[in-house]
Computed example of a mutant assay.
Amino acid sequence: MRLDWLTDPAKERAALSGADPHALTAACALMAAAEGADPAGIRARLDGLGDAPAFDATLERLRGDAAVADEEALAAVRAVKGDAEAAKRVARGCCALASADGDLAPAQADAARRICEALNLSPTQFGL
């Protein structure tokens, strides 16, 4: 899925400096666990914005007991649900960090929609 708003991933990454690192890390792990994702690339782009060891641990749990780990990760994402701007930064951030070139795999787009729903955001505002 092409994200038309994501014209410059590097610029978008720079705008994420204020994103909640725990929520962003959990959202990125959800995106990395999706079929067709590049987990190593997402982890590298997350560097300096999130918690790499927490990303690794969450991704490992998602690959193991996916149902439980999925809910844990979504709970971490929901921590910013009450702050509309923080929620938008997390949603935009996980899309930007999961996509080096503005494209998401179909399963990543589904994960991004679930993240938006957990944040009470409309997926359509992010082109999903």
Rank of each mutant, 00 (worst) to 15 (best):
M1Q: 14
M1E: 11
R2P: 15
L3W: 08
W5S: 04
L6N: 09
D8N: 13
D8L: 06
A10T: 11
K11H: 08
K11E: 15
K11P: 01
L16E: 07
G18M: 10
G18Q: 14
A19H: 05
A23V: 15
T25C: 02
T25H: 01
A27Q: 14
C28G: 09
A29D: 02
E35H: 13
G36Y: 12
A40H: 02
G41N: 03
G41K: 04
A44G: 09
A44R: 05
D47K: 12
G48C: 06
D51T: 01
A52F: 03
F55R: 00
F55P: 01
A57V: 10
R61H: 15
G64A: 15
A66M: 03
A67M: 08
A73W: 02
V77F: 11
K81S: 15
G82W: 00
D83W: 00
E85M: 13
E85A: 15
R89F: 04
R89N: 11
V90E: 12
R92K: 14
C94Y: 02
L97D: 00
D101W: 00
D101M: 00
L104E: 00
L104G: 05
L104A: 08
L104N: 02
A107T: 12
A111S: 11
A112E: 00
R113S: 07
I115R: 01
C116K: 02
C116Y: 03
A118V: 08
L119F: 10
L119K: 09
S122L: 12
